[in-house]
Amino acid sequence: TLFEALYDYEARTEDDLSFHKGEKFQILNSSEGDWWEVRSLTTGETGYIPSPYLAPV
């Protein structure tokens, strides 16, 4: 399942991933609570992002 960003987000740590509203992601790991490890389909980068900022496509 692909997810889309509902809002912009600016990374706060080196493990976070900055992204823009509308960017699409592949979920790599969603078992860590509200922070999911994802791969951006736009940039190819991986990192953690807050799951409340995402919605299924």
Score class of each variant (00 low, 15 high):
Y7V: 11
S18W: 04
A11R: 09
E10M: 11
F3R: 03
E32V: 12
S18G: 07
S30N: 13
T1P: 13
P50L: 12
I49L: 06
I27N: 01
W35C: 11
D34V: 11
V38Y: 02
R39A: 04
V57L: 10
Y53Q: 06
D15F: 15
K21I: 08
E32M: 14
V57P: 05
Y53A: 15
Y7G: 07
I49K: 00
W35L: 12
P56M: 09
V57I: 12
T43I: 00
S40W: 02
R39E: 05
Y53G: 08
Y9D: 01
F19C: 08
E45V: 10
D15C: 15
E45T: 09
D16Y: 13
D34A: 10
G44K: 04
N29K: 08
H20N: 10
K24H: 10
T46E: 08
G44N: 07
N29I: 05
G44L: 06
T42H: 11
F25N: 01
A5Y: 01
D16P: 02
L2S: 05
P50D: 06
S18P: 05
T46I: 14
Y9E: 01
V57C: 08
E37I: 13
R12K: 13
T1M: 14
N29T: 08
G22C: 05
I49Q: 00
T42I: 09
G44P: 01
Y48Q: 07
E23Q: 07
G44F: 07
L2N: 04
A11N: 05
E37R: 10
T43C: 03
Y48T: 08
D15T: 14
Y53F: 11
G33Q: 11
H20P: 04
K21C: 08
D8M: 02
L54E: 04
E14V: 12
A55C: 07
T1N: 11
E23M: 06
V57E: 08
L41D: 02
F25E: 00
D8Q: 03
E14T: 13
E4H: 07
G22E: 02
I27H: 02
K24W: 13
S40A: 07
I27M: 06
D8C: 08
L41N: 04
Q26F: 12
T46W: 08
F25Y: 01
A55L: 07
D34G: 12
F25C: 02
S30A: 13
I49R: 00
D8V: 01
Y7Q: 09
D16A: 15
E23D: 15
F19Y: 05
L28H: 01
V57Y: 05
T43G: 02
F3K: 01
F3M: 08
E32W: 12
Y9C: 07
Y9N: 02
L2V: 14
G33P: 14
P52T: 15
I49E: 00
D15A: 13
S30I: 09
I49P: 00
E10P: 06
N29Y: 06
E37M: 14
N29H: 07
E10V: 14
E32A: 13
E45G: 08
E14C: 13
V57W: 05
H20D: 05
Q26G: 02
L2Q: 06
K21E: 05
D16G: 15
A55W: 09
E45A: 13
T42P: 01
D8E: 06
Y53I: 09
S40T: 02
K21D: 01
T13R: 14
L6V: 08
S18R: 04
G22I: 00
L54T: 04
F3E: 01
L28F: 03
L28G: 01
A55G: 11
T1Y: 11
G44Y: 06
T46A: 07
V57T: 08
L41I: 11
G22D: 03
E37Y: 15
L41R: 02
Y9M: 04
Y9A: 02
S31D: 12
T43Y: 01
S40V: 05
L2Y: 10
K21Y: 05
G22W: 04
S51W: 15
Q26S: 08
A5N: 01
R12Q: 14
E14R: 11
D15I: 12
T1V: 13
Y53D: 05
D8T: 06
L6D: 03
K21T: 07
L54P: 04
P56Q: 08
G47P: 00
Y7M: 12
Q26Y: 13
F3D: 00
L6N: 04
W35V: 11
T42Q: 10
L2W: 10
G44D: 05
P50C: 14
Q26W: 13
E32S: 13
S31E: 11
Y9V: 03
Y48I: 10
E14D: 12
F19R: 00
E37D: 02
E23S: 04
I27C: 06
W36I: 07
D15V: 14
L17I: 12
V57A: 08
H20A: 11
T42F: 09
T43P: 00
V38I: 02
S18D: 04
D16N: 11
G44A: 04
E23N: 06
E37N: 08
T46M: 08
Y7E: 09
T42L: 14
S18N: 06
R12H: 11
D16L: 11
K24E: 05
W36R: 01
G22L: 02
L28P: 00
I27F: 10
I49G: 04
L28V: 08
L54G: 03
G33S: 12
D15N: 14
S40P: 00
L17K: 04
E10F: 10
E4F: 11
L6S: 04
G47W: 03
E45H: 11
D16K: 14
G22N: 04
G44T: 02
P50Q: 11
N29E: 07
P56N: 06
S51C: 12
D34N: 09
Y9G: 03
L2D: 04
F3I: 03
L41G: 01
F3P: 00
I27P: 02
A55R: 10
P52C: 15
S31M: 10
P56Y: 05
L54A: 04
L17P: 04
L6R: 06
L41H: 05
P50G: 05
F3T: 02
W36C: 03
V38F: 01
Y9K: 03
F25D: 00
I27V: 14
S30V: 11
